[in-house]
Design a protein around this nucleic acid. Structure first.
Lengths: 157, 157
DNA sequence: TTATATAACATGGGAAAATATGGTATGCAA
DNA sequence: TTGCATACCATATTTTCCCATGTTATATAA
C-alpha cells in the first residue's frame, strides 16, 4: 500500500462518448487511479440505471468483509455480491486517458453520446445526463426531507 | 497527522474574483492548509447560497465511516455519497495562493467579481458580499433572540 | 510617533502545458 | 478479405503556470 493519502472520487463531469464507446475518464479520476493502480473496475449498478466504477481494492475489501461476516449478511446480500463479481470487468485507459465502455454497460445506463461521471468517494458512477439530472433532484429532495440534521435551518432567503 | 495544534478558519476577508474565476485564498487560510495538506475541498452549501470549503480529511473521514458501516447496499448511504462527493471538488492553489472556482459554485453563490471568505472553524464559507451582509445581520438577530446568555450587555458593537 | 525601507500579499495578463476528442492506422480473428 | 477492436496521431480548447505590478502590512530608524 502506498502512502494512504486521501483518494476520493469527487465532482460531476460530463464527457462525450463516441461511436466506439470511447470516453475520457476525468483527469481528476485518472490521477487517483494512476497513484494506486493502472485500471479501474466497472459494473452495472444493482439499484440504478447507471454504471459503477471503483478501484479493485474496494471489491477486494467487499469480498473480505463478506468472508468475515457471513452470518451477518442476508442471503440476499450474498446474492448481490455474486451479481457484482459476475458483472465486473477491468478497464485500462489508453495514453489519452480514455476507456472503452461495453455495449452491455452503455445499454444498462441508457448512454448514447454523453456520459456524466459522478464522484461517490471510493466509487464513482456514470450516468445518462437526463437520468442523472432527475436522480440528483430526487436525492436532494430526499436528503433534505429525511436528514434534517444536515439542513438545520429552514432555508435561508 | 502533524502536530495537532488548533487549526481553525477565522475572520472575514474580501477578495476579488477575476474573469477566469481566480481568487486569492486568504493568507491565514493558506497557512492552515499548507500545514496539513496542499489543497482544499469546496462544495455548494446545502442550505445557503454560498460555497463551503474544508480540508479533505473531513470528507475522507466520512467516506471511511460509511465503508465501515458494513452497509454496502444501503440506499441512504448511496444517496448521501452521491450528494456530497458528487458536488465536492478539490482545489489546489498556485504559487501566488489562488484557486480557480468553477462556474457551478460561483453561480450557486451568486458571485461575480467579489468574494467574501467567512471563517467557520473547521470549515469556511465563501459569499457574495451583499448576501453575506444580509446573512450576518440575520444571524446576529437570531442569536440575540434565541441565546440571550450570549449577549449579557445591552448590545455589543 | 513619524518617516522610510522592506517584505508579504493581492491581482492582472500572457505563455506553456494538459485535456478532451475526432480521425487514422495497425493488429487480430472470423 | 472483412469486421472488429486496439493503439497511435492531430488539434482545438481549457486549464495551469509564471512573471509583472500595484497595494497593503510590517519592521526599522530617526
Amino acid at each position: 500500500m502506498a502512502l494512504r493519502k486521501t483518494f476520493l472520487f469527487m465532482d460531476t463531469i460530463t464527457n462525450k462518448v463516441d461511436a466506439k464507446g470511447r470516453v475520457s475518464l476525468p483527469s481528476d479520476y485518472r490521477a487517483i487511479v494512476k497513484e494506486l493502480s493502472t485500471e479501474i473496475v466497472c459494473y452495472r449498478s444493482l439499484t440504478s440505471p447507471c454504471i459503477e466504477g471503483c478501484l479493485e481494492d474496494l471489491l477486494d475489501k467487499l469480498a473480505t468483509d463478506m468472508e468475515n461476516s457471513l452470518d451477518f449478511f442476508s442471503q440476499t446480500q450474498d446474492d448481490l455480491t455474486n451479481l457484482i463479481f459476475g458483472d465486473a470487468k477491468r478497464f485500462a485507459f489508453d495514453s489519452t486517458g480514455r476507456i472503452v465502455l461495453t455495449e452491455k454497460l452503455l445499454k444498462h445506463a441508457q448512454i448514447t453520446d454523453t456520459a456524466v461521471f459522478v464522484g461517490k468517494g471510493r466509487k464513482f458512477q456514470i450516468w445518462n445526463p437526463e437520468n442523472w439530472e432527475k436522480e440528483e433532484a430526487r436525492i436532494r429532495a430526499e436528503v433534505l426531507k429525511n436528514r434534517p440534521s444536515l439542513a438545520p435551518k429552514e432555508n435561508a432567503q
